[in-house]
Design a protein around this nucleic acid. Structure first.
Lengths: 328, 328
DNA sequence: CTCCTAAATGTAATCGATTACATTTATTAT
DNA sequence: ATAATAAATGTAATCGATTACATTTAGGAG
């Protein structure tokens, strides 16, 4: 790979002039410019990002942290981020932390070291203290999961309200024994969705029973299956379930299919509206988050921060998508 | 962020000594070493990857190209790659090309520019000519999709054989009218799976009818639904379907559920054994690829190439997982 | 105490770009 | 034709590390 010196030599000019051509400065004569461009073409030259970044302390790379790419929830968000970033000549790097702090560290270092210009974190398991430290010196945006009262700007939805509405929907259908399949409450979204669930129950004077609240260790299908199976073994079984994620809800549907008596109709509501949720049988009622927009806005916020602008937190609208799993 | 000069000054030594401490060279006296280490701790210093990479032309970063993260097929492969890479002190960057050549270019440039040390490509839409050019100067491994007779090392499964076995399974169940839902035949895996499909049919003297071969434009659920819907509108409907990907197969199951008469039992076989495939109703019979191992081996091959070693192509074993969708 | 050798440390070039400032060349006005 | 100005180009420092080579220091032998 040729470097700028070789181009300069070949074109018979100085490296400064080559650099000017590269960055379309105006003070290059057309003649010189074309000489340089020819040399670039001939030697098949592409400027080194390393040299450039080192000098400019800018990489035009954005890190996107997520716990795991296996949850389809992130897919559309990433599309939103990516399209927006690319339109502004930035690229994104997907960083799967697998909820492991060591990996997180490596990615944080990339930012500190100017290998990346900023971070969008969607990882609920992120070390908030470290992220806050990073955010003091570098642009950071939280997407979906956020820190209440924290200083890092975020874009999210109102999880409490969405959960409240989802559970109210179940109540209106006549359900009085409504279970919650949630994840670890160290995550804000899990706490908020439980609060919404409880608010709806309280409003209708329905009991909040802790044996109907099941906490899973992870969000994949299998954990949903297992949670539902546990709920089905209770002497007083719930007639409806609200799960904090579609993956759990789909697992619950599966468990109902496999283990429940066919005459028991158990209604299920999920959260996220992942693409698979309309492929299940029955199709899944769920809370739709504007995932693409969330990603887009997160990217826009980060781009603003990169320009040194202040940004406001944003809470986007959600929507309850009613499908077969609550109709029967 | 402090730099090496500041550490040197603080510790009262030269930058060379600091660098030696950083890279645990042996020729540093214990006294000096601890002075330097203290300065590093005090100033909270972390060496700049940019400076280091520029000098060493090494980044210890591996690029993983994939067309889209929305296909769960890639999830486990990525885990395999990532765990292997991290064990050797490499990190991976996930690059979603969205099948767009511009994006591909950016990522190729990262490699040319030493921002990344090598590439594992899982993208069937990759520009093979450009990838081959890149592979002349940089380590590149193909994972899953590969180039027959090409010079880039690959790890994959025997798609033709797997498809042949899958279709034979359908034939043994008594199906004589077997459809194929495939994707664009510009992809090698699609061609190979069609060949396997045809070989099985020929072997049992069953007709190969082109109205039973449907090519989709993409691999998502919706395209599977649409394909199956088209097949159900034929006057002579197939009694079984082999789809080249689980996502398509799951869409097909959905379409059968929605549009087929309940008395028609249409058997379905997919390919990949994604985690969803055991959540559907009926559960999906499918070809299981050793995805984690494939990723692991791809990473190991790349690490070997990075050390300058030669590597051999590897074809891994697959397995037909029989579930409800071919039992009824 | 001196000399020699080995160990420890320092100096300065290097990687590949950008850019402030200096210098040369071209253009315009008088 | 000459001075003044504008445009084009060049020179060299810089970003933050590594490392060959040079130099200093320490330790041991005589």
């Amino acid at each position: 790979m040729a470097n700028i010196q070789q181009i300069a030599k070949k074109a018979g000019v100085s490296v400064a002039t080559v650099s000017r051509v590269l960055n379309n400065a105006t003070l290059v004569s057309p003649k010189t410019r074309s000489k340089v461009e020819e040399a670039i073409k001939e030697l098949n030259y592409e400027p080194s990002m390393l040299g450039r970044n080192l000098r400019n302390s800018e990489s035009r790379l954005i890190l996107v942290l997520l716990p795991s790419i296996s949850n389809p929830f992130y897919t559309e968000i990433i599309n939103g981020i990516q399209n927006t970033a690319i339109a502004s000549d930035y690229n994104i790097l997907l960083c799967e932390t697998d909820s492991k702090p060591e990996r997180e560290n490596i990615y944080f270092n990339m930012v500190k070291n100017k290998l990346a210009d900023g971070v969008i974190s969607m990882d609920p398991t992120v070390n908030m203290q470290k992220l806050n430290e990073l955010a003091e010196k570098h642009p950071v945006i939280l997407c979906s999961e956020y820190e209440k009262g924290g200083s890092i700007p975020y874009v999210t939805v109102d999880s409490e309200l969405a959960a409240y509405q989802a559970v109210k929907h179940l109540i209106r259908l006549g359900n009085e024994r409504i279970a919650l399949i949630s994840s670890d409450e160290k995550f804000l979204y899990a706490r908020q969705r439980r609060e919404g669930y409880e608010r709806a129950l309280r409003e209708f004077q329905l009991p909040i029973r802790k044996e109907w609240i099941y906490h899973t260790k992870a969000l994949d299908f299998q954990h949903g299956v297992h949670a539902m199976r546990m709920l089905l073994q209770l002497e007083e079984k719930p007639t409806a379930v609200f799960a904090v994620s579609d993956t759990l809800a789909i697992g619950a549907l599966k468990a109902i299919n496999m283990y429940a008596n066919t005459e028991e109709q158990i209604a299920v509501v999920g959260f996220d509206n992942i693409s698979f949720s309309s492929m299940t049988n029955p199709t899944l009622t769920t809370v739709s988050q504007p995932m693409y927009d969330m990603g887009k806005i997160a990217a826009e916020m980060l781009l603003s921060r990169l320009k040194g602008e202040k940004v406001e937190n944003i809470v986007l609208e959600h929507e309850l998508i009613i499908r077969e799993s609550t109709i029967g």
